[in-house]
Design a protein around this nucleic acid. Sequence first.
DNA 1: ATGTAC
Length: 379
Amino acid sequence: MSQQHSRASTVTVFASPTSWIESDAVAQCHQVAALDGMMHVAAMPDLHPGKGAPIGAAMTSAVLYPFLVGSDIGCGIAVFPVKLRRAVPEKLAARFPDLDRALDPERDAGDPAWDVVKDEIPAGYVEGLGTVGRGNHFVELARIGTVFEPGHAGRLGLDADDLVLIVHSGSRGLGERILRAHTEVHGAGPAPDPDAYLAVHDEAVRWGALNRRLLAARVAHALGFEPTEPIVDQCHNLVEVRDGVYLHRKGAAPGDGRDVLIAGTRGTPSYLVAGHAGPEAGHSVAHGAGRKMSRADALRRGKAKHTVEELRRTPVGSLVVCGDRQLLFEEAPTAYKRIEQVIDDLVRHELATPVATTIPLVTYKTPDQKEQRRRRGRS
DNA sequence: ATGTAC
């Protein structure tokens, strides 16, 4: 751990010296620390450079800065229990619904996935409802691998070899619209009326959580298991008022006594952890493996290093459903840091305790084009 | 990460 001072504020990086942290990302932490009102920046071991602000940081300030949360307000990772008798990746991959196609309240009124929408839709925003999005978002059927804490896993209803559905998605166009409305007038400046920003921000956080449940319900109905409430659902892009100041989280999950799924990659395990992070860590833990390469680098280097086939069938035997070749390279496991190193850093700094790993079976990114043609031809 | 423009 390294701690440095920028004016009156502090920057703490929760990573061991051997962990690869890009200097650009640390520089971004110091730029953030120098903002008016900033008190503390806690950088997680998955820290990497973002657009203007670092990703993988919890930033505490007397002033609310919407750009520190970014456009995907409400993005998070949820875990749902799955009861299926057999789980053959090839068969299940072919049954995933088209999660690029939004649910329409009128046309899809009879869709059973709507059962999860009990109250009104946050902000009345129906565009993109039930869609997963792009970038690092995914929906993954996985099985529980190693159980480190059987008692804790048991309380979550989990045991080795159980199946789970992991949903990583956010508020789609709604969060983008909220940030744009602020940025058009105030740029990277603070929210002049923090309560007004928080009111719309909170709608996006609720929208994101609802969307993850909708996505799970769509997959549940298509694959033939019972849709349920999530076991775990933590949002890693949000701002909350805590101890009278603003705690901005960007790619940092609430880790104060809560359980969090820390995503690995599309080809490596993920870790379900029990978070116990204190104020120095911004009450937060990492949200994933963290990018090691920019998207551009991952595309250029990936094309030289991997075939599409080896990215679609991963080293752990899972399948990646992704009709977008560029996205497949951008999201290659080798574009990310080693999840084990990220978890090890969290453990060393006493921010989290691993409960269990999840091993991917099928990761859905975006419809497979061949599969889509086959379905269209059939209907 | 996003919707939209190029």
